[in-house]
């Protein structure tokens, strides 16, 4: 893999992702929510103008959050702060890097700015996380310089079904590579539309060369435990903590209990006793939107190429 930042670039970028493992990254829209997230034990926050459920409900063009808002959140918490840029919008990414955010999410939740190209992430010092639905998509993003992959799921729905689908797909695709002969890998790379070098790397190690997290529709402690047990190394929770439905914020006390419960379930993902306790603590989860009843055109996960 070539690196424009020198040999140290990717290691430093994935290094921060290593520190986030086993934790929960929470979407927040203001300093007060960021404070609640940190107090509940979030390992990082994602600074947004609107959470995905609101974006979905309100429509319009969704862009990078205002630097003023992101800065306010950065000044409030001591944990890492991430922010989203539109797919392919390298100028937004430049702004976020200049602002000093710790991770940039080139995200399908925002309205894409380029229908063909993603951001050349090697050109940046700030690390990037990108969404993927299968191994080919994950490896294309890694080839472009992503230092963390997350499942896309279907953001803003509170329906975990596609986070599960994407995670299972990625794991299945990787497992398949590990039993292939050397000569089969060339054809498989073509099939996956991914660079052969990366395909061979996964075939040998059985895992992605960067940390693999999960996002998209995770709304309860049990959802977090589910994706962790399926192999996700950490969890992004978007609308699931601070929203009670697509347009209304949950009361702060309720959000805090939910945040704390999801954090605990993410660490003790394989301990049903703790999962019962955390599930019982939560008073209601976001109402959500069933993906099965959704029109394909409304799906955010289709964005990205």
């Amino acid at each position: 893999m070539s690196e424009k930042n020198g040999n140290y670039g990717l290691r430093l970028k994935t290094g921060l992702a290593e520190m986030l493992k086993g934790g929960v990254i929470m979407d927040v829209t203001d300093a007060k929510q960021a404070e609640i997230a940190e107090k509940a034990g979030a390992v990082a926050v994602m600074a947004l103008e609107r959470v995905p459920a609101q974006i979905r409900a309100e429509g319009g063009v969704a862009r990078m959050a205002s630097p003023k808002k992101i800065r306010e959140i950065m000044e409030t918490v001591s944990i890492p702060v991430m922010a989203k840029c539109r797919i392919g919008h390298f100028a937004e990414a430049q702004v976020l890097q200049e602002l000093g955010v710790d991770y940039v999410d080139e995200s399908e939740v925002l309205t894409p700015a380029d229908e063909l190209h993603h951001v050349d992430k090697h050109a940046f010092k700030v690390p990037f996380v990108c969404g993927a639905r299968d191994l080919g998509e994950a490896l294309r993003r890694i080839a472009e310089g992503a230092a963390m992959i997350r499942t896309k799921g279907e953001a803003g729905t509170g329906d975990v079904v596609h986070a599960v689908k994407h995670l299972r797909q990625i794991v299945k695709d990787m497992r398949q590579l590990t039993v292939m002969g050397e000569e089969e890998l060339y054809a498989q790379a073509k099939e996956l539309r991914a660079p052969y070098e990366l395909v061979r790397m996964v075939a040998r190690s059985g895992k992605l060369p960067v940390p693999n997290f999960s996002a998209g529709g995770i709304a309860t402690p049990a959802d977090a435990a589910l994706v962790r047990q399926l192999g996700a190394e950490a969890v992004f929770v978007g609308s699931g903590i601070f929203m009670s439905d697509s347009t209304t914020f949950a009361p702060a006390a309720e959000a805090e209990i939910r945040a704390r419960a999801i954090v605990r379930a993410t660490t003790h993902f394989d301990d049903p006793k703790v999962l019962l306790e955390t599930s019982a603590e939560c008073t209601g989860a976001m109402k959500g939107l069933a993906i099965a009843a959704m029109a394909e055109a409304d799906m955010l996960q289709k964005r990205g190429w």
């Binding site: 290691r11 430093l12 921060l16 950065m74 890492p80 890097q97 700030v126």
Partner: peptide, 26 residues
């Protein structure tokens, strides 16, 4: 500082075997 100030450096150490690589992250 923040992630942008993270770095990988080499420095002397009292551990035998010469300079040590150090990965600093936030």
């Amino acid at each position: 500082g923040r992630q942008l100030d993270s770095s990988i450096l080499e420095a002397d150490t009292k551990l035998a075997g010469g300079p040590l690589e150090m990965v600093f992250i936030r």
